[in-house]
Design a protein around this nucleic acid. Structure first.
Length: 127
DNA sequence: TTTCTGACA
DNA sequence: TGTCAGCA
């Protein structure tokens, strides 16, 4: 399965293609990059190149946004995800594990509503 | 023609 | 976020 992952990690899509695939504006895509949500590679001409994984990422971000989660929340999600990944490095990181984490974090942030500038640490009780 | 950065609303 | 400018 490593072959597949490698291919999915190959950045070959220009932003125009990504725009159509994700239905996001170039503005948004670049902004998400600024936020460190996606890290496209660059061509010699400084053009952004996205991978299939990036598309997935963007689609996921779009989803979270629709769910009413703000940028801070999304950042937290990926931050915690890579944190988990770092911990259980050689550990069995199966797809189920990822889904588990995703589901877990999703429920977690769902409780913080769409307040702005609110971190996961200072959750407010929703009534 | 397409993308890039920076900036203003 | 949209949009415009001025480049490459």
């Amino acid at each position: 399965m490593t072959e597949k992952e490698l291919q999915r990690s190959k950045s070959v899509l220009p932003i125009g293609t990504v725009m159509r695939l994700t239905e996001l504006s170039a503005r948004q895509i670049r902004y998400y990059e600024e936020q460190g949500l996606v890290i496209p590679t660059r061509t010699e001409g400084n053009r952004r190149l996205y991978s299939l994984n990036d598309i997935d990422r963007l689609l996921e971000i779009k989803d979270y946004l629709t769910e009413g989660i703000n940028m801070a929340g999304i950042k937290e999600i990926y931050d915690q995800q890579r944190k988990r990944a770092a911990e259980r490095k050689e550990e069995t990181l199966t797809d189920n594990d990822v889904r588990q984490v995703l589901h877990d974090e999703f429920l977690n942030i769902s409780g913080m509503e769409r307040t702005s500038g609110t971190s996961l640490h200072s959750q407010k009780p929703l009534e």
